[in-house]
Write a protein that binds this DNA or RNA. Structure first.
Lengths: 159, 159
DNA sequence: GCTAGATAGATAGCAAGCTACCTATCTATG
DNA sequence: CATAGATAGGTAGCTTGCTATCTATCTAGC
């Protein structure tokens, strides 16, 4: 019964008081994600980029031009957060926002030449950072991790 | 060979372009942690508490009074961040900062009566939130997850 | 015993996430 | 066709993380 709820563990934990902070997965997940983010940001900063710029460029490279709403959903951030990022990225010439007559509310975001250049420059940094982060983990372990995270994500809901 | 580096996968990924964003563990880890944090914050908010207050109270309950520096390290946040939290928590009467003559620089943080009250009120919320988050995961799977996160944390370094 | 460097905490200011709300536009319906 | 509601994006302002820097104090070495 692999998916059963573990009554013993949960009861023991409730008895033991605030073991939450020390030994539980929740804070560890939190800390690991925070450290990984910092790790990526540091590496990208050395290459003159930001985390936000990287995710935007990678998304556009992978999916092609998108309107902001779709891009925000894709990146799991809210509209205003993306707006701010795009504002600075457009100022730096990394992307362009193009408004069409088809729907004059929407703005299609595309990679600009300088964005292409930056993408080419930093994609290897992102890839190697990921490799370093997962160093020593086998394919099987990475797949396990991925599955476990999916199941947790399911539990807490796509917010 | 459980700990080997997977040359095939990494090469395939580098070839395939920015699969990073879509299928890799890094963004999933990021999103899962973000969602879990939001999940906890929402539950705690319903009980009139904040995530920061919960972690501070739980740490003090578990470890006893601590000076701010130790508390910040324990919570993996920086001094100024903790200072701000303690400022509002002290205003709300949840904690007290006591300066001793032994080291007049340091401030020992203790739980105040209202903090005790809040802790008792929300600890069950935190425990049940954690249960919900891990619903369907066996002890073995939770232990696996914990180990994998530890190994990643090791790779990206305690920053 | 004095002074240089280390340490605890506070303050200021930046970044990036969020919600609430505004405007402009589109769509669907009477 | 007019208009009510939905939708795209922007603006304002909050929160919580951070770094840099300041003050006060402690400690070690001369």
């Amino acid at each position: 019964m692999p998916g059963r709820q573990s009554a013993e563990r949960l009861a023991a934990e409730a008895d033991a008081g605030p073991t939450w902070l020390r030994s539980s997965v929740a804070p560890k997940l939190h800390l690991t994600a925070k450290s990984c983010r910092a790790f990526f940001e540091e590496r990208l900063a050395e290459a003159g980029a930001t985390f936000a710029a990287w995710t935007v460029l990678a998304a556009l490279k992978l999916e092609g031009p998108m309107i902001q709403r779709a891009l925000a959903q894709y990146l799991s951030i809210e509209g205003p957060t993306l707006s701010r990022h795009l504002e600075s990225m457009e100022r730096r010439g990394l992307v362009v926002r193009r408004r069409t007559d088809l729907d004059r509310r929407a703005a299609t975001v595309e990679i600009a030449p300088d964005g292409e250049e930056m993408y080419n420059r930093i994609s290897s940094v992102a890839i190697s950072s990921q490799q370093d982060m997962l160093k020593g983990l086998s394919d099987r372990e990475i797949a396990q991790l991925s599955t476990l995270l999916d199941r947790i994500l399911e539990n807490v809901g796509p917010r």
